[in-house]
Amino acid sequence: MPDAPQDIRYVAKNMRLDLRLIAEMIPRGAKLLDIGCGDGALIEHLTREKQADARGIEIDMAEVTKAVSAGLAVIHGDADNDLAFYPDGGFDFVVLSRTLQAVEKPREVLRQMLRIGRHAIVSFPNFGHWQLRWRLLTRGRMPDTDTWNRPWYETPNIHPCTILDFMALCEMEGYRVEKWLAVDERGLKAPWRRSVRMANLFGEQALFQLSRTG
């Protein structure tokens, strides 16, 4: 993994690659909320390695129980219903990893994230990836890949979007894109920083850091 940044080597091996990339973006001592935090891998890492005040929300009760049993501040809840109860500007960072496509109201969730946090970090699987386009074109069926592996009638991913779609939404809502990157199938940072269209074709996962303008 020659092009992986140096400072993520200590990260627990079982932590998802997109979480490793997010962990890199969080400064030491930050206060953050991880929405859809799973078993709390990112929270635990940031608490231990970066002395962060890290909290989480998770919808899957088994994952919540695991996280709480590990002493983490995780609550059972979901992005659509629970964010409204947090105060304005309560967090430095609000993280939503691989969850945006599964929430009921993605636009409202983003608004809430940027209300309660100074920065929002959002990662999502890119529906513009060439494999999805190719399969839809050649087979005429909904894509079936490693990332999009559930049939249309039972997928929790009810709001898929492409990198271009997401950028358009940010522009419409007036969010500043502070950082963004696309990650290829192996989770390595893709070298298409200068071409959004290339990233939209070859990036399997997208990662954005946003803030409010004005």
Partner: peptide, 21 residues
Amino acid sequence: SRATVRALNAAGASVSFVEIA
């Protein structure tokens, strides 16, 4: 319990919350 959790979140408190089946 959820109402209390939400009030604690509004107060900025550190909260863990599970509903046990």
